[in-house]
Amino acid sequence: MSATLMEQRIESLLNEGKKLFIPYVMCGDGGFEKTGDLIRVLESAGASIIEIGIPFSDPIADGPTIQAAGQRALDDGVTLKKILSFLKTLPPRHDVPRIIMTYLNPIVQYGLDAFFKELNDAYVSGVIIPDLPLEEYDMISSYTRDNDIAIIPLVAPSTTPDRIERMTDKAKGFIYTVTVNGTTGARQGFAEELTNRLESIKSQTNLPVVAGFGISTKEHIDLLTQHCDGVVVGSRIVELANDGDYESIKALVGSL
């Protein structure tokens, strides 16, 4: 699915009055068969977009849960090459788009040209690259343009308004707002500053605004979706998947 099609899909969901639920999956954690099952469960349960995580040895934006999941996958010999082959065998159901979250080094080593060319065949519409800030987008922008792949930018609490504007110019799909200055992983609650900030970012861009990092409960989801277009749930899904607790996953996805 191209980035353009993903944008149309997002727009129609939002026009129906729905909010976006974007679960994160550490690809290959527990084996590809398990990842495949998990993706099917998420698609059926009503996920809007699925974020596919690529394991990396040095994940500086991730907390302990996702880092441990990535390490399990790496210990099992999971590579980007195997992940792309796997994704090509698994066409999405229910028109649920996929995006990839990866650190830069695995795709640099794979070859940027080859990586972005293969994303369409792997049914991937966009990329989130946590260690590629605005200043370095040029490194990939010709590839994302040529293959119609969305660059989904991360906006942090420390991000200034002028940076948000420059990111929005280059972004497609949606804006991923990081809830806290910190790493991924479950948290107790969120400061009031966050809801104000989400409103403020929404007023600065025409793209949908999604919140992520530390969102783990129905209460978090209910609160934040009052102020933005959707949520990413990562560590909590990874944890439940590792426990094999698919019922709780379905309940969480279905809670929106």
């Binding site: 260690d131 605005l134 200043e135 370095e136 991360l154 942090a156 420390s158 200034t160």
Partner: peptide, 20 residues
């Protein structure tokens, strides 16, 4: 000015760190 020594260097960090 972007912190490059030829093709090496740069600033490959999460957005959170960029303003700092």
């Amino acid at each position: 000015e972007k912190g490059y020594f030829g093709k090496h260097g740069g600033r490959f960090v999460p957005e959170t760190l960029m303003p700092a």
